[in-house]
Amino acid sequence: MRVIKVKHAIEGGKVAFDLLKEKMAAGAKVLGLATGSTPLEFYKQIVASDLDFSDMVSVNLDEYVGLGVESDQSYAYFMKQHLFDAKPFKASYLPDGLASDLNASLDQYNQLLADNPVELQILGIGRNGHIGFNEPGSSFDGITRVVDLAPSTIEANSRFFASMEEVPKQAISMGIANIMAAKTILLMAYGEDKADAIQAMIEGPITEELPASILQNHPDAVIIVDEAAASKLA
């Protein structure tokens, strides 16, 4: 696990972008992408660049159950707004939040990941240590599935919705085994509210009660943290 400390999210986005360029120059063709506020500066760097993704594939970590691509709170909409409209990929895949047969859709997504091994997976981290929507207690052997969101995650996501009642209570998420299969993992964390999770992820025991702690076992995990998120590290 390689930890890179930066002053702020803007610098972190630049460092992440440089790593992406390095991986693409080495031949990477499949990117695992994340949503939320954490990767926004990274996506801004990509959009402002001359990088060409027309020969690349993207797969996203998760999507809310019950939201379709037209919903402005769906992750599909987020990705179009912040990346895909400006930088289209050869193919971009997200879980289907409106699938009529969720079990079949999950099987298809797991097969998709097997057919398109992720070479660089982007991650954020929740205040409770979740990665993707793998909440505390998630099996390290888990694959793509429907998950019930923890109250703390629902609360954190409520800032994007008009009311707490509108926040989806379930999501489709890659499992931890899917995430760990990526050749390189790049996790970014900014802000004091992530300090406890970062400290536990890097310095604590490997436990399913802190899902991100499994990254200690990954052969190529890069962690970008600002000064606030790194404030409790030894």
Score class of each variant (00 low, 15 high):
48 A>K: 14
170 Q>L: 06
45 Q>M: 11
180 M>D: 15
71 S>V: 04
231 S>N: 12
137 G>F: 10
211 P>A: 03
111 Q>A: 13
220 D>P: 00
29 K>M: 07
109 Y>R: 11
183 K>V: 02
85 D>C: 00
191 G>K: 01
165 E>A: 15
156 A>E: 15
75 Y>R: 05
120 L>T: 09
86 A>N: 15
97 G>C: 05
89 F>Q: 08
173 S>E: 07
133 F>W: 12
94 L>A: 10
23 K>G: 04
49 S>P: 02
71 S>I: 02
206 I>E: 09
121 Q>H: 12
54 S>D: 12
81 Q>M: 04
42 F>Y: 14
180 M>T: 13
119 E>M: 05
88 P>Q: 02
145 R>Y: 01
138 S>E: 10
225 V>S: 00
137 G>Y: 11
158 S>T: 06
31 L>E: 01
180 M>C: 14
80 K>T: 06
155 E>G: 02
214 I>A: 06
224 I>P: 15
233 L>E: 13
91 A>P: 02
95 P>R: 08
107 D>M: 07
234 A>F: 10
125 I>Y: 10
124 G>H: 08
100 S>C: 04
129 G>M: 00
187 L>G: 00
210 L>P: 01
146 V>G: 07
48 A>P: 08
175 G>H: 14
6 V>A: 14
186 L>Q: 01
129 G>R: 00
229 A>H: 11
169 K>V: 05
135 E>C: 05
109 Y>T: 12
98 L>P: 13
96 D>A: 03
184 T>D: 09
47 V>I: 13
190 Y>R: 09
223 I>W: 04
143 I>P: 01
85 D>R: 05
200 A>F: 06
130 H>A: 01
81 Q>W: 00
12 G>F: 08
194 K>F: 00
149 L>I: 11
100 S>P: 11
60 N>F: 01
124 G>N: 09
168 P>F: 04
36 G>H: 13
169 K>M: 02
97 G>I: 02
220 D>I: 02
187 L>I: 03
114 A>R: 15
5 K>N: 14
193 D>Q: 11
211 P>T: 03
45 Q>P: 01
203 E>P: 02
185 I>A: 09
181 A>S: 15
60 N>K: 05
32 G>E: 10
54 S>V: 01
68 G>Q: 10
169 K>D: 07
40 L>R: 15
185 I>P: 13
204 G>H: 03
229 A>Q: 08
93 Y>F: 15
178 N>G: 09
205 P>N: 08
211 P>Y: 06
111 Q>V: 05
159 R>Y: 05
198 I>C: 08
174 M>I: 08
94 L>F: 12
13 G>W: 14
22 E>L: 14
208 E>V: 04
139 S>Y: 11
213 S>R: 08
225 V>H: 09
68 G>F: 06
24 M>G: 07
37 S>V: 07
2 R>D: 15
7 K>C: 04
77 Y>A: 06
40 L>K: 15
119 E>A: 03
145 R>E: 03
